[in-house]
Design a protein around this nucleic acid. Structure first.
Lengths: 171, 171
DNA sequence: TTGCAATTGAGACTCAGTCTCAATTGTTGA
DNA sequence: TCAACAATTGAGACTGAGTCTCAATTGCAA
């Protein structure tokens, strides 16, 4: 099996996590981590399953889902809603929290992080005596490229349906 | 059929919307709107289906989903993610946009609205040349009541799983 | 190297949500 | 008032992401 320096670190990190839990770093898990961290950034579970099949690695749907769950638990992968009716995953490249701008025209996902925004959220929580642990913000709209091409924003009710996962994004 | 003043206005509004689209205000749709606006605030589609059955009104699953879709289009109902792996709906009482604090301990959903936060979001979009139409913010954590009862915040990975809909909230 | 818990794959299963189609209903205009 | 006909409905088949089961397999520690 060829050595893959790009993903060796992640495989090591996952191995450490598994060991701590008394779990094993199997060939299937290794192959999945390699695939996830080598190519994809945002991806879907079934997409990953398909990629593995394509590469001739027979890994069952159950194993894919089980491994993703472990990766989420280890903090190396996050499960996110991106305005479709099923989940997306994104690998966490050691870097920190961010939120998403989602273009309802082309499906582009733009990440951002803003300290000011986070601070204001903490203030709101304080006022409500609420102890936050995690948050989730998606802003839907039309990206700069699509605006340039003359794309008008979608109607609010369409966007609302997309936000709720009732409509697929146009791809 | 007894007259229900509490919901007459909403039934009227929905009727107007339907008429504009060349659609009909049927007895099933009327019954659903009455149920939604009389009792529930946040609810699930199947919960609504069950409630109707309970009341002896035989309304099919398909009709419930179809009517909810129309209500979302009319703007009278919103579809929201509340940290579970299926949708929730909330009726819009003529009032405006809000976001959610979700307690991962008791499942409580606290609404809030903050102009400062919205303003900052608009600024971020401007900077990214993104034209927003809608947004969606959930903050997960532990509510004041649960803290008072000595409940500690969930671990970040558990909350992340809840946020992503992979775990059910403890009810 | 053996023993055994952890892991795997195949496929059955779940469950929210969608679709189909024949039967029914509401509305419009004569 | 009624006929005509499009919109609507219900029953149940279907979908598709995700979960579960269980017998067979694998990795690791002694």
């Amino acid at each position: 099996m060829p050595h893959s320096p790009r993903t060796a670190k992640e495989i090591g990190r996952f191995g450490d996590f598994l060991q701590l839990q008394g779990l094993k770093l199997t060939t299937e898990r290794t192959a999945l981590v390699r695939e996830i961290f080598a190519t994809h950034y945002h991806f879907e579970a079934d997409e990953l399953l398909f990629k593995m099949k394509e590469k001739g690695l027979k890994i069952s749907r159950a194993t894919v889902y089980r491994t993703l769950e472990l990766l989420v638990k280890s903090g190396m992968v996050r499960r996110v809603h991106l305005g479709e009716d099923h989940y997306h995953y994104e690998h966490v490249a050691g870097n920190s929290h961010h939120d998403h701008l989602i273009c309802t025209t082309c499906g582009a996902v733009i990440e951002f992080h803003d300290d000011e925004l986070e601070k204001r959220q903490r203030e709101i929580c304080e006022r409500k005596r609420f102890t936050p642990t995690f948050h989730n913000l998606q802003i839907l709209g039309v990206c700069a490229d699509c605006r340039k091409k003359g794309q008008q924003p979608d109607s609010p009710d369409r966007v609302q349906m997309i936000a709720a996962g009732a409509l697929q994004l146009r791809k």
